[in-house]
Amino acid sequence: MSWEVIGIWLGALLSLCLYSFLYKDNPFYKFAEHLFVGMSAGYWVIYAIMNVLVPNWWQKLVPLEGGFQPIWLVPGVLSLFMLFRLIPKLAGLSRLSLALIVGTGAGISITAMLQTRALAQVNGTIIALGQGGGWFDWVSNIIMVTGVVCGLVYFFFSKSHTGVFGGAANVGITLLMVAFGASFGYTVMARISLLIGQTQFLLFEWLPTMGIHL
C-alpha cells in the first residue's frame, strides 16, 4: 500500500467521521474534531516559526553572512514578554508587547483602511451614470450610487431617521437587504461547492482504492 493510498484513506475516514455529526454528536465526530484542533494548532505554530520568525527575526538577528545585530533582540524580548501573560506575577510585562501590536496595527489600519476601504470604494462609486451606453447601464449605475449613499445614510445614527433623511435610510436598508440576501446565497453556494468537492473526493478517489469505480 503506497503512502498516497494511505493518505486518501486517512482523509476519507476523517471526513466520514466529521460527516457523522449530521446524524448526531458521536465519539467518531469528537475524535476527528479534537484531532483537527490539535493538528491545526500545531500547523499554525510551525507556520509562524518557519515563515515568520526564522526569516524575519532569526536571520536578521544572526545573518548568514555573519555578525550579530543586537537591535533585533528587542522584538525577541517583546515576543517573550507576550508569553509572560501565562505567569500571573509577570503578566504586566505583556502589556508592552500588546502596546506595540495595538499601536502599530492601529497606525497601519488608519492609512490602509482610508486607502482601500474608504477612498478606493468612493472612487469606484463615482461613475459616469451613462457609462456602458444603454438605458440599462444608466439604471444600474443609479442603483449603485444611490445604494452606497443611502446605505451610508442608514448607518449614520447621529441624526434621527425622519423626513428626507429617513426616506434615504429606508432606501438604504432596502438595498442592504438585497445585498445581505445575495451575500447569504453566495456563502451557501461556496459551502455547497466544498461539499461537492469532498463528495467527489470520496466517490472518485477513495472508492476506487477499494476497486469500486463509479
Partner: peptide, 17 residues
C-alpha cells in the same frame, strides 16, 4: 452581485472603515 450587492457591501465597507 454586481450592482445592489456591491452597493450594499460598499456602504458597509465605508462605514466600517
Amino acid at each position: 452581485m454586481q450592482y445592489p450587492n456591491m452597493a450594499g457591501q460598499r456602504a458597509v465597507m465605508i462605514g466600517a472603515a
